[in-house]
Design a protein around this nucleic acid. Structure first.
Length: 481
RNA sequence: GCGGAAGUAGCUCAAUUGGUAGAGCGAUAGCCUUCCAAGCUAUAGGUUGCGAGUUCGAGACUCGUCUUCCGCUCCA
């Protein structure tokens, strides 16, 4: 795997230096695996979020958006499988430093035993798991002489509980408060609102519900900058379909989502699909869209065929029918009738997308000429997601040039983000804009007063041309559409 | 979470065997007015990550703690 640790480090430093991303609570030595977006980062993130939202909702007539709360009824997470699957007792082997789920470890051992003996062991394990008797579980592992397959030793740590979900108290009186979780994924907010949205929106299958929001996971290992955070933002869409059509819709959304990625101006060879071999508990097909980060190919988006797992479970736990009546006629001429819809999920990490866009845009250019070393750092964002669209720069801060610049500023700032600056040499100002990825700079000079033209300077090519002052807004508007 | 390295101004780094914390860049204000960074002047910015200990004296030595980086696992 081609990795470029230096480039990754350079991007992280650049993000801090130019107000994109700071470590959370930095003045208190930071909070591990939590990051804040600064003045440019939040603008970039917002632009990506808006672009996704528009692509998914506005551009698809059968997809609507919602904004569900982060707090949800605790039973939600029982139904989704998160309580059982994300809070398992774990044990580490001290020699190989390999970590196992206690039940997996024992089950694997049971397979090597005669049936009767194995069943006895499993029964005992279930008993201990139910009582959450971690000491007993460790004893059981040691008594059974279970060895680590890597190190071959039985040198185990204590059994510990890892809960990947954050919990907090609902209710201000602590004795009466009940424990609730911060959602570990946004999808469940869509599933529990399935009927509300379908009925009030008079939506007919196939249709989708999209949502952007924060999710929280208590990661065991937290590292790699905003790639793996405890608090992160997901952009998800659940697409509800008729059972039996999941294959074609899965393929449809794979293609559709890849088109979106390519529309960011990122070449196809920087992407790849990675099919899941080992499927999650809720899926019958799953793949990732991976991007070639400086640290190698990593997952940005997941596309999962979730079957009716979620709706079916919510139906079971809530005792509410999660059904849809399909009036369309099947081959025999009868309506398809009642069924629990199947779901194709597209789920993309917003923070990871920011990271992807930054990785793709970041470049250090060597502009040296003979006898004069020169370089610039540039963020080649697509104009539509750049934090600042246009920099307005009077060549000198006298002779009435700032006044003309201010007029242009007032005209443009209602339409898109502009930046005004009159300090320092013009070249220096251009380079500062390159560093935050501003696609266009216009300079107002003395000629502007005579013929109403300005110099527009393009970020990537550094080319300049004269255009009419009046044409500036339209040019930028067109570029960011 | 475990093992290894590091932490000095916004950034990059200095500071003799333990003896008054400095430079360049950047930032800010002003001068100069010039279409691609590094012209001139001035200014600000530090309890050396934090806390304790050894010492007459600690940026340096010891311990703890926090954070970051490099190796081992899950995920969006």
């Amino acid at each position: 795997m081609a990795t470029d640790s230096n480039k990754f480090q350079a991007i992280i430093s650049h993000c801090k230096e130019y107000g994109f991303i700071f470590q959370s609570s930095e003045i208190y030595d930071g909070l591990s695996a939590v990051y804040d977006y600064g003045q440019n980062g939040s603008e970039l993130k917002k632009n990506i979020r808006d672009y996704w939202w528009k692509s998914m909702t506005q551009m698809h007539e059968n997809i609507v958006g919602i904004d569900a709360a982060i707090f949800m009824h605790p039973t939600t997470w029982k139904a989704s499988g998160h309580v059982d699957n994300f809070s398992d007792p774990m044990i580490d082997n001290k020699d190989s430093q390999k970590r196992y789920r206690v039940d997996h470890l024992i089950e694997a051992h049971v397979e090597t035993l005669p049936k009767e003996e194995g069943d006895k062991l499993l029964a005992k394990m279930d008993q201990l798991l139910a009582k959450e008797d971690f000491g007993g579980l460790k004893q059981l592992i040691e008594d059974s002489k279970i060895k680590c397959t890597v190190s071959g030793t039985s040198n185990w740590t204590d059994v510990r509980q890892f809960n990947l979900m954050f919990s907090t108290q609902l209710g201000s009186v602590s004795e009466e408060a009940s424990e609730i979780y911060l959602r570990p994924e946004t999808a469940q907010g869509i599933f529990v609102n399935f009927l509300n949205v379908q009925k009030t929106g008079r939506l007919r299958i196939p249709f989708g519900i999209a949502q952007v929001g924060k999710a929280f996971r208590n990661e065991i290992v937290a590292r790699q900058f905003i790639f793996r955070m405890r608090e992160f933002e997901q952009m998800e869409m659940q697409f509800f379909i008729r059972p039996g059509t999941q294959k074609e819709w899965y393929e449809y959304w794979k293609a559709e989502r890849m088109k979106w990625h390519l529309s960011l101006g990122i070449p196809a060879e920087r992407y790849r699909f990675h099919d899941h071999v080992k499927l999650a508990h809720y899926a019958d097909a799953a793949c990732d869209i991976e991007y070639d980060f400086p640290i190698g190919f990593k997952e940005v988006e997941g596309i999962h065929s979730r079957t009716d797992f979620d709706l079916r479970n919510h139906q079971e736990y809530s005792k509410k029918k999660m059904q849809y009546f399909d009036n369309d006629l099947d081959e025999s001429g009868k309506p398809y009738g009642n069924y629990i819809p199947y779901v194709i999920e597209t789920s993309i990490g917003l923070d990871r997308t920011v990271m992807m866009v930054l990785s793709q845009a970041f470049e250090e250019e060597d502009l040296s000429t003979e006898g004069k070393p020169d370089s610039r750092v540039i963020l080649k964002f697509p104009p539509r997601i750049a934090p600042v669209k246009l920099a307005i720069l009077p060549l000198v801060k006298k002779d009435g040039l700032p006044e003309i610049a201010r007029e242009l500023m007032n005209e443009c700032k209602t339409a898109f983000r502009c930046f005004y600056e009159e300090k320092d040499a013009i070249g220096k100002r251009y380079r500062r804009q390159d560093a935050i990825g501003t696609p266009f700079c216009v300079t107002i000079d003395h000629q502007t007063k005579e013929d109403g033209t300005v110099t527009i300077r393009y970020r990537d090519s550094m080319k300049q041309e004269r255009i009419s002052l009046k044409a500036v807004k339209e040019l930028v508007d067109k570029a960011i559409l």
